[in-house]
Structure formats: C-alpha cells, structure tokens
Simulated assay, not measured.
Amino acid sequence: MTADLHTHTTASDGTLTPTELVTAAHQCGLGLLAVTDHDTTAGVAEAQAAALGYGMQFLAGVELSAEGAPGKCHLLGLGIDPHHAPLVTTLATLSENRRQRNLKIIARLNALGVAITLEEVIALAPRGANIGRPHIAAVLLAKGVVTDLREAFTRYLADDAAAYVEKATLSPAEAIALVHEAGGLCFLAHPGLLKLAAHETHESRVRALAALGLDGIEAYYSSYSPADEARFLRLAEKYQLLVTGGSDFHGDNKPDVPLGIVRDGKPLARTLLPGPLLARAVG
C-alpha cells in the first residue's frame, strides 16, 4: 500500500473537488490518502465518503498556519475529528479572518490601479472554496493583469509583495494544542521550506516545536533532495518525533507537483509511516 498525506482540494486552494481528488488518488494506486486543506475541514466528509467507496484508507486532516515563537510555520493535523467543536469554532474564526484579509488585499490592489472586486474572485473560485490568495491570483490572470499565476504572486501577493497583507494565525503552541484536542497528531509541514531567522537552524526550530508538543515532521516531501530527507529523518530520530510524508498536491495551482509523488518520484510506502498515525486511518 502507498500513501500521500498532504493534499489540497477546492475547499481551500486546490483545483480538484474532494471527490475528484480521491478518484485521482485511486487511479494513481494510492491506498491511503489524507486531505489537508488550509485552515478548513470543509472537504473532509466528501473525501472520506469517496475514499471508503473505493476501498481506500483515509485520514482526516488540516493544514494550519502558525506564527509566533518559535516562528512562522505550517502544521499538519492528521487523524483529527473534523467535528470536534473547538476545532470547528476556531476554523470558522480563521475563515472570517481570511475574508477580512481578502478585502484588505483587494483594497491594496485597487490602490495600485488594479481593478478587481471580491465578487469577481468569488465568481471565479470553485463553489464552496475558502477564498484566498490563489483565487485572487486567478482573477488577475483572467483579467490580463499578469501573464501567469507565478507573476501574480511575485508582483502582488507573495510575502512582502506590493499587495501582501499579513495573515491572522494561531501561535504554534495553540495550533499544536488544537490538533491534540481534536484527537490528531501534529506534524511540522515541509520543514525544508521554512524561512529561518539568522540565529536559527532547522534543528533549533524543530527542537523548539518539539518542546511545545509537536508529534512529528514531514520528513518525506515531493521537492526534497536525498540530503534533505536524510537531515529531517535524523532530526526526527534525535528528538523522538514521528514522520509523515506528502506531495502537497494542489492540482493546476501547482502543476509541477503531481499527486502521489512523495519520495524518489513515487508514492510513499505505507511501511515508512508510524503506527500511531496509521491507527487513526479510517477504512
């Protein structure tokens, strides 16, 4: 059995619906899939039903943005209860914060002479999507303001770009605690992509998060080199952390990241995943 435990659907910034994603995963031969949309579990129920229909195993997940000591990061909650009341409430608050942020980004774009409205963004986005920067980028592309999505981010939407607005997030400690309260395990997503301060190393960041209760790290990831993978496996062993792995699939929003390609150009072998994580899989 093979697995991909980091994927996104139209519930956040992916381009496949939850059912379409699961169908594609089944066609890829995956036996275990996690849906980890940004700050929402809106696609989990549909994806789980589709996975069980194909006889696949499924992990309910979420990818939470976190900022504060020890620094900005993304955290994966895997094996969560998506109906856990505090989780549902917190995600609703984050969704409202995201809506306010979208309005501020659009206001900055307007001030820069870019004519765009929130209504245009909603109209172009998939139905039910948790609207964010990729959907704004799609409108910029459709209106000819930019020539591709990469330019939309580079010129306007990326961190420190002209229309960037900081995202309201949980602290790492809050995010880890929330995942635990919802019955899941919390993993540091794609540590190789962390933006570290001058005084930091990957090890110091992992050590600080481990002290907050982090369960593991995403030691297998679609863009890692063998050296990257070896480094994060060593850190996991040193700090007694579990490991997970995923492609970070987004569909057409990240066309260079195929579904199921996690390690050495292949899906992740289920045997590389820890028992406490597999025990939370449904199906």
Rank of each mutant, 00 (worst) to 15 (best):
L193S: 15
T10G: 07
T41D: 00
G246V: 01
V179E: 01
L212W: 02
A279D: 15
L59A: 05
D37T: 05
T169F: 09
L188D: 04
I122W: 02
S171V: 02
V262Q: 07
L214W: 04
A85K: 15
F232W: 08
V146E: 00
E120C: 00
T89W: 12
Q57H: 14
L112K: 10
A219G: 03
R270N: 12
T201P: 02
P70K: 07
Y164L: 01
S223T: 14
V165I: 12
L30P: 05
N102F: 11
Y54A: 12
M56C: 08
T17Y: 05
D264L: 08
E119S: 13
R101V: 01
H8M: 06
Y224D: 11
E229K: 11
T41V: 15
I122H: 06
L273V: 02
E63F: 06
A168Q: 14
A111Y: 06
Y54T: 04
G265H: 07
L5D: 09
E67I: 12
A49R: 14
P267G: 08
D81S: 13
G29S: 07
L212M: 12
V165W: 03
L233H: 07
K167W: 09
H180N: 00
R155I: 11
E229D: 06
A137T: 05
L59F: 06
L259V: 03
F187K: 02
S95I: 09
F249L: 02
A230G: 03
P86Q: 08
R270E: 14
T117F: 03
G68V: 12
T36A: 07
P126I: 06
V62D: 11
E237H: 14
F187D: 02
V44R: 05
T7K: 02
L91H: 08
L193T: 14
R133F: 00
T154G: 13
S171R: 08
I131W: 06
G245R: 10
L233D: 05
A111R: 13
L78A: 10
L141D: 00
K104D: 15
A137C: 08
G275H: 13
K266W: 01
T40V: 13
R98Y: 09
E67A: 15
S222C: 15
A45S: 15
E20P: 05
G260D: 04
E120N: 04
